[in-house]
Amino acid sequence: MPIKSYIAYTEPNRGPALAATIEAIAGCGAIAAGNRDALIVVTDSDSEDSETELRAHIESIEGLRGLTLVSAFDGGEEESAL
């Protein structure tokens, strides 16, 4: 049950709109930078396969210039990495 966060870079001045688009995807959260063309994206999915699909979906959004993984947590109660 992975929870992951990414830094996403966007085309100029498209951060807020892209954040809204990503927020609308189930299992995704996004925060736009106020002064840079960048977003924070957080994903919450049931499995690594779902996470891979979610990531592919986000990466396909026009105006996004790529995702950089920052952190990943296994959210399962028993097998949590933390």
């Binding site: 966060s5 924070i40 920052v70 952190s71 947590f73």
Partner: peptide
Amino acid sequence: MLKQLATASAI
């Protein structure tokens, strides 16, 4: 809590 931690890490 983990989602918030992940967000904080990325920020």
